[in-house]
Each structure stands twice: as structure tokens, then as C-alpha cells.
Design a protein around this nucleic acid. Structure first.
Length: 423
RNA sequence: GGAGGGGUGGCAGAGUGGCUGAAUGCACCGGUCUUGAAAACCGGAGAGCCGCAAGGUUCCGGGGGUUCGAAUCCCUCCCCCUCCGCCA
């Protein structure tokens, strides 16, 4: 959430930033409500000052036994109280109206985010490795999955629905191995603490990280308990410290494996084949809490940590930066990592590494102490480290052999019981 | 799910209608003392909102109510603990 004070003082900056994002928001209406709210609060607080003084005086009169005077004053205070009740109700209504606007306003792009009008304008920053040459006709992953019985799409669709694959045999073990490999890397090499959070969250948590109120249609929801299935570990892990003041003198770095659940409401019919777009998938996530001063530098560290996973797996990838038009709702700055998948001949997004500035911290009220001991909002960052299905796609398509087997990268073999090839 | 107990500042823990934003202890910060440190002593120190400021206002799990006035009384929800039941 944006700081209302900042909006008040920099309305034109905010409007321009939102325009760069192709986002709509009624800033003038918001400021009008804000102005009214402050006026009503000022009046209400003035009356409260009066009431508090009068009530205190009544206490004194009662003690002195001046009953009549006390009774007269009571009547007076009651009238003030009625007026206060009306004003307080107005404030409550204004707060709600303001929330209904401000919670729908996305974060402002950082000053270094390139301005663009579509994903076409996302610059490629760098790449690692190169496209492999194959001496045979490469297969898309769905054929490999079927031939090696790594994934059972049909039965997943039967027991749940499309987009819920069943991993089987070596496919299931590969999932588990990749998760362990990535968690081990982040905890032993990158200084992360592993956490295993709940996979469902309440509305306050979803609001804290920015999924609610705007994106409720994208999530699975259990009405009887009013809980949402998490679309990413970012939600429970970031909300660990909701409404807390924490010590971030050193960056707080948490990593978690969780399944992720997404309804993909706006993407029905796209990428229906294979593992490219699923309703449930596994992901290892990294979440950082830092001071405002640290955040830009920490963003670079975080992207490097995510890249390390792919470097160790020997996969060809590129890093792009999202331009203003393609930036996620809560992000101020974001890098995406895309893996080359030779079977489907596409770049696949496997990681999104974002700096949220204080946007999430303000929504979730996560704070730290500044050098003077005063509370200030932390900065939050997170990055996939990385998402599994598309990683599996790129992995098995890249390492497929002419005989139908798939060679496993060295780093995974210990996790696969020494296995060198799938198949 | 049933019965009982409880949720107060970073922590522990007083407080049952007004002088309590909150005693006391611990932890924390500053100072005195000391060669330095410890101890002792003195002092400081919660958060949000409104306000240029002075200052005001709100907050004792959340919400609602009673009252001139609520941490304190009433209702309701949530959470934690103990016991019983069920159970991975």
C-alpha cells in the first residue's frame, strides 16, 4: 500500500507512475476523502478533549457531593458524546472508502525500472550458457514424461481436474530431489533459514502481501473456514512477521518449499498441455526482510542466489527486467529468470525476483527500528528459487538423449540415489 | 467436540469504574563512579492517528454494548493453556 502522506504531497508523481504501469486509480477522489477524513477527525478529537475534561470534572463533583451540578454536567456530556458517535461513524465510513481505493492501487515502479508499454519492452540483462545442438529430433517434455512414466496427466485430471498432474516413479523422486537440492543450496551456501509454513492462509495475510482484495478470483478458497490456499510461499513466509517490529540489522533470509495453488482464472485454455501452466505446482521460495538502505543491494544478491540454482544444474537461461507495464501488482522492481526449453522451443519463466520496497511492509505492518530507535517499515524482497514444473520441463528437454533417456546433472545424482539417467 | 482457566508494554507481572498509557522486576539506552569493566546509584524509554507546532486523541487479544467516564462491568468472536473425548 502506498503512503497516503506521500500521495498527498506527490499526487502528480503518483499519477505518472501509475500511468507508466497502465494502472487506473482515482487519486483525486482519494485525496478528497483523505481531506474530509482529517477534518472530521479534527472535529471529533476536539470534542473528545472537551468530554474527557468534563468527565474528569464530574468525578470531582461527585466526590465533593455536589450531585446537582454533576447531573447537569452529565446531560451536557451526553450530548457531546452523541455528536462524537456520529463523527466517529463518519470516520469509520471514510476509512473504509479510502481502503477500498488505496488497497487496489499497485506499488510505484522504482526509479530504475525501465518504462515500457508491454512485455515487449522488457530488456534482457544477461544470459548463461547457450542453446544446445541436438543430432536428433528433440521431443517436447510431455512425450518424454509419457514415455518414461514420469507424470500421469490423465489420472491427475480424473482425481482432481486438468492442471493437477500426478508425478510417478522417477518423476516423483525427481521432484523431491530438486526440492532438497535447492533448499540445501540456499541453507548451506546462501545463509537461509528453512521454514515450513501452513499452505493455507487467512484474509489478513493475503491482504498483507497484496493478493487481496484485488486478486481473490485467482485463489482457491475454503468458505467454511474462510481460508485461502496459498498461490506462493511468499504469503505465509512474509506474513510471519505481520504486525511485528523485527531486527533486520542483518537481512532476515528465509526459504521455504511449498506447493502453490493458482486458479489461473484469466489464463484458461492457455498452455493446457504438459507442465507449462498448472493449478498446483511445487516451488522453493526465498524471502528477505531488510532495511530500506539495504534493499537495492539485496535485490542483486537475491537474483544471484536464484541464478546459482540454474548454473549448478547447467541450464541455459537469461535474466530480463520487467518494464513498468509488466511489473507485478506489489513490486517496485522485478527481474525474471527464463529457462530455454528446446522441446517446446520457448523461454520459460521459472523465477521472479522482486523488490517490494515498503509496499508489503506497510500493508502488513512489518517494521524495524531505525538508527534512532524509531519504528520504520522494512523492505521485503522475494524470489523463486525456483519453481519446479518449468524447471523440470527445461531439464528433461535439455538433457534428453537419442535413446529416449534423460541424463541427470551431476548435482542431482546424490539426491536420486546415484542414478545417472532417467529411463 | 465437551469442561475449566487465561490473553496487559521487548519479556515477566500488578491493576476489578475516574488521580492508570498503565505499578514493580528483568532486559534496553544515557549519565555518575571506575585505569577499564562489573556492581551500585541517577535519569530516559510503548505504538498509531490528527496537528507547522504547542499539543490533542486512540490503543490493555478483535468487535459490539452499559456509563458523564471502561484495562476494570456485560455480550460476542478469536487465540493460548489444562483435563476429557476423537484421531494422523
Amino acid at each position: 500500500m502506498l503512503d497516503i502522506k506521500f500521495i498527498r504531497e506527490n499526487a502528480d508523481v503518483v499519477k505518472q507512475a501509475l500511468a507508466n504501469r497502465n494502472a487506473e486509480a482515482d487519486i483525486d477522489g482519494l485525496l478528497e476523502l483523505d481531506h474530509l477524513r482529517r477534518a472530521v477527525i479534527t472535529e471529533a478529537e476536539g470534542l473528545k478533549t472537551e468530554r474527557n475534561a468534563a468527565s474528569k470534572a464530574i468525578g470531582g463533583l461527585m466526590k465533593e457531593g455536589k450531585k446537582d451540578e454533576a447531573e447537569a454536567s452529565k446531560e451536557n456530556v451526553r450530548i457531546i458524546g452523541d455528536r462524537i458517535a456520529v463523527l466517529d461513524e463518519q470516520v469509520r465510513e471514510l476509512d473504509e472508502k479510502i481502503s477500498n481505493i488505496i488497497l487496489y492501487i499497485p506499488n510505484l515502479p522504482s526509479a530504475t525500472t525501465p518504462v515500457g508499454s508491454s512485455e515487449e519492452d522488457n530488456p534482457v540483462l544477461r544470459s548463461f550458457g547457450e542453446k544446445k545442438e541436438f543430432s536428433f529430433e528433440v521431443k517436447p517434455h510431455w512425450d518424454i514424461c509419457e514415455e518414461l512414466k514420469l507424470v500421469d496427466f490423465e489420472r491427475g485430471a480424473k482425481i482432481t481436474g486438468s492442471g493437477f498432474p500426478v508425478y510417478t516413479g522417477q518423476g516423483a523422486k525427481l521432484q523431491r530431489s530438486l526440492i532438497s537440492f535447492m533448499l540445501d543450496l540456499h541453507t548451506t551456501e546462501h545463509g537461509y533459514t528453512e521454514v515450513e509454513p501452513p499452505f493455507v492462509c487467512n484474509a489478513d495475510s493475503m491482504t498483507g502481501t497484496g493478493q487481496l482484495p484485488k486478486f481473490s478470483e485467482d485463489m482457491y478458497y475454503t468458505p467454511s473456514d474462510e481460508l485461502y490456499l496459498i498461490p506462493t510461499a511468499e504469503v505465509p513466509v512474509t506474513n510471519l512477521y505481520r504486525e511485528e517490529i523485527i531486527d533486520v540489522e542483518k537481512p532476515v533470509k528465509l526459504t521455504a518449499y511449498t506447493p502453490c495453488f493458482r486458479r489461473e482464472a484469466g489464463a484458461a485454455g492457455r498452455d493446457t498441455r504438459g507442465l507449462l501452466r498448472l493449478h498446483q505446482f511445487d516451488k522453493v521460495e526465498m524471502v528477505n526482510f531488510v532495511t530500506p538502505e539495504q534493499s537495492a543491494a539485496q535485490h542483486e544478491i537475491l537474483i544471484a542466489e536464484a541464478e546459482k540454482v540454474l548454473q549448478l544444474l547447467g541450464l541455459h537461461y537469461r535474466v530480463i527486467e520487467l518494464c513498468t507495464a509488466d511489473l507485478g501488482f506489489s513490486a517496485a522492481k522485478c527481474y525474471d529468470i527464463e529457462l530455454w526449453a528446446p522441446g517446446v522451443e520457448r523461454w520459460l519463466e521459472v523465477s521472479s525476483v522482486s523488490n517490494f520496497g515498503d509496499y508489503q511492509a506497510r500493508r502488513a505492518r512489518i517494521r524495524c527500528r531505525d538508527e534512532n530507535g524509531k519504528p520504520q517499515f522494512v523492505h521485503t524482497l522475494n524470489g523463486s528459487g525456483v519453481a519446479l514444473p518449468r524447471l523440470v520441463v527445461a531439464l528433461i528437454e535439455s538433457y534428453q538423449n537419442a535413446d529416449g533417456t534423460v541424463t541427470l546433472p551431476e548435482v542431482l545424482r546424490p539426491y536420486m540415489g546415484g542414478l545417472e539417467k532417467l529411463g
